[in-house]
């Protein structure tokens, strides 16, 4: 056992690597390019309901005028995005999804034909 090894960690801390903590609450969240956050409705929707059917947790409700997704039930699996025949649902990049009340987790979009 080398004596110098005993003190390795002093070299390996901030001295070698610097601070690795992200600046997150003070700066923007750094997500990998491929990260998938909550599903978002971005394009046209003809309220066919395939997404609601594909959702394993039944978090999506579609009417002729509204597309509503309950992020409290969503498990971010991406089934709805894959199930949308128009490719209008995408897994977004917004990771700041908290809400002060339970109802705040329900996100609605107007259905645009």
């Amino acid at each position: 056992m080398k004596v110098t090894n005993l003190f390795r960690f002093y070299r390996l801390g901030v001295g070698k690597r610097g601070v690795v903590t992200t600046r997150y609450p003070n700066g923007p969240a750094e997500l990998p390019a491929a990260a998938q956050c909550a599903p978002e409705l971005t394009g046209k929707c003809d309220a066919c309901g395939h997404c609601a059917e594909a959702c394993p947790t039944k978090a999506i409700a579609v009417t002729t005028s509204k597309f509503t997704i309950d992020l409290g039930d969503c498990i971010y699996c991406g089934e709805c995005a894959r199930g949308c025949p128009k490719g209008s649902i995408v897994m977004g990049k917004n990771c700041e999804l908290s809400a002060r009340k339970r109802e705040g987790l329900e996100v609605s979009y107007d259905v645009r034909q």
Binding site: L31, A34, I75, E79, M91
Partner: peptide, 15 residues
């Protein structure tokens, strides 16, 4: 885990 996220879109390799 960030590598997981980069490769599969999920930190826990979900989906």
């Amino acid at each position: 885990m960030q590598l997981n996220d980069q490769v599969t879109g999920s930190r826990f390799l979900r989906s």
